[in-house]
């Protein structure tokens, strides 16, 4: 565990909590892509099956359970409790265009052809594209509340910090997880455009982040 990994996990947790509280307190999920949240719940489900097979540390177990609980709770808020505020019109990204290639690739490119390993690989590939429906929805509606922008900032920072963590681990212990690193780079690249907008518009204090 190094500072990059820990701060990455903290950013991830902050992002998930920001989103959950935003929906819970505003009693609305307007501007939020339910599809992305379902994909994230799927990412955690397929990645954390090892909760039942291997114990790494209390921190590892607790964080996995917290991520799963918050992810499913958020999906529950969007599709059940506050479903009348869910803007399915704007949340029109075809997730099958993500799921099919990701599933196919996880069968082709993995570390071992075992169910747990393929599901883990699937979750890594899926996570790199899971935010696309949300980013697509923002470009479609042309704007995002600043709280949603903060959510995306922390979510983007989390994997960027993991990249630093992998650099550090490669440098100090020769650890190198090719699948996770390549996917992490792709994932972070998708946020670059958003980061630019965030630091040029949201921080200027304009309440909403309106896209060009």
């Amino acid at each position: 565990m190094n500072i990059f990994r820990l701060s990455g996990d903290v950013c991830h947790l902050i992002a998930i909590i920001i989103l959950f509280l935003k929906i819970w307190r505003s009693k609305s999920c307007a501007g939020i892509s339910g599809k992305s949240q379902v994909l994230f719940a799927l990412v955690f489900t397929t990645r954390y099956l090892d909760l039942f097979t291997s114990y790494i540390s209390a921190y590892n177990t607790v964080m996995k359970v917290v991520y799963l609980l918050l992810a499913y709770s958020t999906v529950g808020l969007i599709f059940f409790r506050f479903r009348n505020s869910y803007d399915s019109e704007s949340d029109s990204f075809r997730v099958e265009f993500l799921l099919v290639p990701v599933a196919g690739l996880s069968f082709l490119e993995n570390y071992a052809f075992t169910p747990l390993e393929i599901l883990w690989t699937f979750s890594i590939y899926l996570e790199s594209v899971a935010i696309l429906p949300q980013l697509f929805m923002i470009t479609k509606t042309g704007e995002a509340e600043s709280i949603t922008a903060h959510y995306l900032l922390f979510l983007g920072l989390y994997r960027a910090l993991y990249l630093a963590n992998w650099l550090w681990r490669f440098h100090t212990e020769g650890f190198y997880d090719q699948i996770a690193v390549v996917s992490g780079v792709v994932q972070t690249i998708f946020y670059c455009d958003f980061f630019y907008l965030y630091f040029t518009r949201v921080l200027r204090g304009s309440g909403k982040m309106s896209l060009p």
Binding site: R5, D9, H12, D50, S54, I56, S57, N60, M63, K64, Y67, Y111, A112, E117, W120, Y162, N165, F175, D177, Q178, A180
Partner: peptide, 10 residues
């Protein structure tokens, strides 16, 4: 195949 990483990360 590459060493199966310890999956000690989230």
């Amino acid at each position: 195949d590459l060493r199966i990483n310890p999956k000690d990360e989230l």
